[in-house]
Design a protein around this nucleic acid. Structure first.
Lengths: 282, 282
DNA sequence: GTTCCGCATGAATCGATAG
DNA sequence: ACTATCGATTCATGCGGAA
């Protein structure tokens, strides 16, 4: 059986006890600069990079060479301008030895309402993918999506040009062989994720939707792998990882969130046993 | 009558002849690093910031204090990693005196296909908003959209002349319908734009869809204002600005694109006169 | 007139092979 | 070793012709 461990500690402390090359996937949403002040005390934007770098350094140590680190972050507006600490953080993390492989966009379909004279509602966040090595595990087939409707009609009748590679029309060298697509139902996704924010009673100010960690856990781990969230918050990452039969560790410094995560995990697992029981009866 | 001037020159040269505080909106998509190599020669990623800074400095001089600069850009992948030149550019432009007000996301619904072991297709680009002053002109009501789903599906199948009529607000049946319908349930948009790239016969490798400059021209200018595109390319920005009764200047260094822009503008304007003639007859 | 269907095409990237 | 070129992979869109 996979384990699910939650620690009520500062994440630097917990991570210091972990061996090198231990974790398969880190996915976290750290407290944003100067936000959630009432709970985490708030880190001011100009101290943010300084505050985060020791953490990213430790993450680099404990991550497996084949592993991935997904950082959910967005810069806040300070005096009418976007802050630059996220960009500075990326540049500094590269100096630590991280590879900045990709930037996914989380498009929040139901973003926070509001109106300002000089800007619109912020409907997206960054999902930064960092790696320790240029060769990492990626299980792309696990997250394939339904192909658009166009394919249904397209694949019924193949034209002659569809049956052979059709290069050299432009200089791009890009051709196609549509006949390869017969029987193909699904397509690979892109680097833009369309997910609604979770607005139900999580009692945590920065909960992300379960679909978000689920997607990355599918993409970057297999069953039995280890998923870490050093800023567990409401524990969404751990709950989802546990449900997906991954080992998982969550670290949360605030006792009230720590308790909440434990409650959620217990509830989830008893529900699981219950449904297993029901299934056995049928 | 508004003017539409296209120059076949290096943009630094053309801009040097312009007075200070002259332009209301700059919207441009410069050649990306090492991209479009066959036509523009390509700028290597590590020289990109150095190459662009003199241009952004000149733009800062000729932009009005109430004006806005929209920069469409995306970093390419180099050796399995996203390049950092866009982030470095933002940091350097702030040192020049620019405010980095916002980052809009252009979600490209039909992005370039392909498959790689370590990444998915890139479906988004950055639309960076820079300002000279914290107080700039923004006409938010001009870009309001239907509550919930976007009006796009309704507008998609309309012909060009319908779009012109809508933009010139001449009280045609179409415009009236739209305005009634917007008044019923209007909402401000977000900072995520969903547009397809134009893949038809533009003869330019990097044309953006007309909706893109149209949206920003509506948002940041009014009729009679001046819109500049220092890397005009196929001239989309200028054509749209001209149609929307803005003054516009386009600069394009390559003679073949320069000719193409002039042809397009002439065609557009003669079509406009023709439809005006028809309208007068009715 | 309207809907349907066929088709070209696009700011790409990786890994292997050749100079 | 290091750089340059080449082949392989892929999907949504708008247009134009057909039904």
């Amino acid at each position: 059986m996979e384990f699910c461990e939650i620690y009520n500690e500062d994440c630097l402390q917990t991570m210091s006890k972990m061996p090198d090359n231990y974790v398969d996937l880190v996915i976290t949403s750290p407290p944003y600069a100067d936000q959630r002040k009432s709970t985490y005390g708030g880190i001011s934007p100009n101290k943010y990079v300084e505050w985060f770098l020791p953490i990213s350094k430790e993450l680099l140590r404990i991550l497996k060479p084949t592993g991935t680190f997904i950082l959910n972050i967005k810069e806040k507006v300070v005096e009418g301008e976007r802050s630059t600490y996220v960009m500075e953080l990326i540049l500094e993390m590269r100096k630590q030895g991280w590879f900045w492989t990709e930037e996914f966009i989380w498009h929040k379909k139901n973003c926070f309402p509001g109106k300002w004279p000089n800007r619109f509602r912020d409907a997206w966040e960054r999902l930064l993918q960092f790696n320790k090595d240029k060769h990492f595990n990626m299980y792309q087939d696990e997250v394939m999506v339904e192909m658009g409707d166009w394919a249904k009609s397209r694949l019924r009748n193949l034209s002659d040009t569809d049956k052979i590679r059709d290069n050299s029309k432009n200089g791009s060298g890009f051709g196609k062989n549509i006949s390869n697509w017969i029987d193909r139902k699904k397509a690979y996704p892109t680097n833009v994720l369309h997910l609604a924010t979770e607005c139900n009673n999580k009692n945590h100010s920065a909960a992300f939707p379960e679909d978000l960690p689920e997607w990355f856990i599918k993409l970057f781990t297999k069953e039995g792998d280890l998923v870490l969230d050093p800023f567990a918050g409401s524990g969404t990452t751990n709950i989802v990882a546990n449900r997906m039969h991954r080992n998982t560790i969550g670290i949360e410094i605030l006792p009230e969130y720590f308790e909440m995560i434990n409650d959620s995990i217990n509830k989830e697992n008893s529900k699981h046993e219950y449904s297993g029981y029901i299934a056995a009866l049928c």
